[in-house]
């Protein structure tokens, strides 16, 4: 998993889905994960008011996402799950 860049988390370089306690879902390329932050690049966000998360995620799994943020750091305490987008069947 990942490209094993020195000093980076094993998910570095992998497109991941980050679930949060706030119900936002983030899809982006993982730059790093540490005890404080999950840092993503080229990130799209799904918020509860955007509609069905499952449909959004299914389309993301099939085709990818249109990035809204070049770089985004998410407070690790808000993060409930991190998994590769490629593991989700489109």
């Amino acid at each position: 998993m990942g490209t094993f860049h020195q000093g980076k988390h094993a998910l570095h370089g992998i497109t991941v889905v980050v679930g949060t306690a706030g119900d936002e879902l983030y899809v982006g390329r993982c730059d790093d994960v540490d005890e404080r932050l999950v840092v993503l690049l080229d990130v799209a966000v799904h918020r509860p008011e955007d509609g069905e998360a499952s449909a959004w995620l299914e389309r993301a799994a099939r085709f990818g996402v249109w990035p809204e943020h070049r770089r985004l750091a998410i407070d690790r305490q808000r993060v409930t799950s991190i998994r590769p987008l490629g593991e989700i069947s489109p």
């Binding site: 497109t15 799994a61 990818g64 590769p84 489109p90």
Partner: peptide, 29 residues
């Protein structure tokens, strides 16, 4: 209409896109 990613692969049949492999379906495999 498909978000850009690279590497990626597009299969066309008679000029129509019928199958697409985005980058995230290659990563880590």
């Amino acid at each position: 209409d498909i978000p850009p990613s690279s590497p990626s692969m597009a299969l066309f049949k008679d000029g129509e896109l019928v199958y697409f492999v985005p980058r995230h379906r290659i990563e880590g495999r």
